Simulated assay, not measured.
Amino acid sequence: MTLPRDEDSALRHWSARLIQALQILDLEVDHEKIVEVAEESRKAVGPHADAISAFIVGFAAGTAATNGRKSTQEAVHAASDKVMELCEHGESGGPDEKGWAKRAQ
């Protein structure tokens, strides 16, 4: 997915403001990936699944990176890919379904 130039610029500016305000200065944000996750979540589940999915991807990535298991970028992509996989099934399927054991971050 490629974001329009104006939107990409606005998201980069907003991200820079948030990163500075929250003092997480070494964070790099893959805007296109997060927007893709949000859009697919909204389509698969409903209008507020986008925000919840983006938050959970960030939380999962932060946890994985903090524990030294993955770099931040690797953790974001792994969590995002997992969300995209879940979006393929909408509200059905998930960690409690057969075949999901031991697939967490």
Rank of each mutant, 00 (worst) to 15 (best):
E7Y: 10
E7R: 14
A10E: 05
L11T: 10
L11S: 11
L11Q: 09
R12S: 14
H13R: 15
W14H: 09
A16N: 07
A16F: 01
I24N: 02
I24M: 11
L25E: 11
E28L: 03
H31T: 06
H31C: 05
E32W: 07
E32S: 13
V35N: 06
V35E: 03
E39V: 06
R42K: 15
R42F: 00
A44Q: 05
V45E: 02
A49N: 11
A51I: 12
I52A: 14
S53W: 03
I56M: 13
I56C: 02
A60N: 08
A61S: 08
T63Q: 11
T63S: 08
A64R: 09
A64S: 15
A65H: 12
T66S: 10
R69Q: 12
R69D: 13
K70L: 12
S71H: 04
Q73N: 07
Q73T: 10
E74V: 08
E74F: 04
V76R: 01
H77G: 05
A78Y: 01
A79N: 04
S80D: 05
S80I: 11
K82P: 00
V83E: 07
V83P: 04
E85F: 03
C87I: 05
C87G: 04
C87T: 10
E88P: 00
E91W: 05
G94I: 07
P95E: 01
K98C: 01
W100P: 00
